[in-house]
Computed example of a mutant assay.
Amino acid sequence: MTAVLTTLNLAVERRGSWATLGHSGIDKRPVAHRVMARHEGLEGDLVADRRVHGGPDKAVYAFAREDAVFWEQELGREIRPGNFGENLSTTGLDITGAEVGERWAIGEAVFEVIRARKPCRVFAGFWDVPDLVKRFIAQGAPGAYLRVLQEGTIGAGDPIEIIERPGHGVTIGYLLRALTTEPHLMPRFLDAPQMLPKHHEKARKWLATHPQETSAR
């Protein structure tokens, strides 16, 4: 199956008591036009709280429509593209199995998979599902934040080509598990030079405090 950017989604400002700053860009909706992917994010996208969103290491967020099906069945309601707060809704792409450092060519742009999405209370509030954070982590398909390595325009219908895969085996799904429920997995981070320095530091600290335990490396 060919991997495709099914929809390209930009934020519509939403306000609510659940929003950290009183407003949020978590509600993203499909647009028909092509958009320029910049190193800091997509042109025209709203990032409300830049302390925790946006910037080079969270420039773009991708989520697979195949994983959305689980939540439609779990919650008994339709979840449209962009409702996870994702900029890129994809089909035919295993995002959970993507390795940190994996590179994708979409349209004129090139992206690098850099980190898993850890859900927050804003996400839970937006969906009005109080225990969503716990359930999202347990389901284990968090989507991925991407860096923009090569700026360019992208649009719905563009094919997605995996142009580089590092081969270290530290996937988005593995990263989420290690950072949440299975910290003993963190030493494997050191086998992946593409990972963020703070994640390498977490791995070193875990090893320093568990010298007698068998690591997952």
Rank of each mutant, 00 (worst) to 15 (best):
Q73V: 09
Q73G: 14
E74T: 15
E74C: 14
G76W: 10
G76C: 09
G76N: 12
R77Q: 13
R77P: 01
E78Q: 09
E78H: 10
E78C: 02
I79F: 11
I79H: 12
P81G: 10
G82W: 01
F84W: 08
F84M: 07
F84N: 00
G85M: 04
E86R: 00
N87R: 06
N87I: 00
T90I: 00
G92K: 11
L93P: 00
L93S: 02
D94V: 04
D94A: 08
I95N: 03
I95K: 05
T96R: 11
A98F: 01
A98P: 00
E99F: 01
V100T: 12
R103E: 15
W104G: 00
A105T: 12
A105C: 12
A105K: 14
I106T: 12
A109Y: 10
A109T: 07
A109D: 14
V110N: 13
V110K: 12
R115Q: 15
R115M: 11
A116I: 13
A116Y: 12
R117S: 02
R117C: 03
R117L: 04
P119E: 10
P119V: 06
C120K: 13
C120I: 04
R121E: 14
V122F: 01
F123I: 06
A124S: 14
G125D: 11
F126Y: 14
W127N: 05
W127V: 00
V129I: 13
P130A: 11
P130F: 05
D131V: 00
L132T: 13
L132F: 12
V133S: 06
R135A: 06
F136E: 03
A138K: 15
Q139K: 13
Q139Y: 10
Q139H: 10
Q139D: 09
G140C: 04
A141T: 03
A141Y: 05
A141K: 11
P142K: 10
P142H: 09
G143S: 11
Y145S: 02
Y145I: 01
Y145H: 09
R147M: 05
V148R: 10
L149E: 15
L149T: 08
G152E: 15
G152Q: 12
G155W: 10
A156W: 04
D158L: 00
I160R: 06
E164L: 02
R165G: 02
R165D: 06
R165S: 08
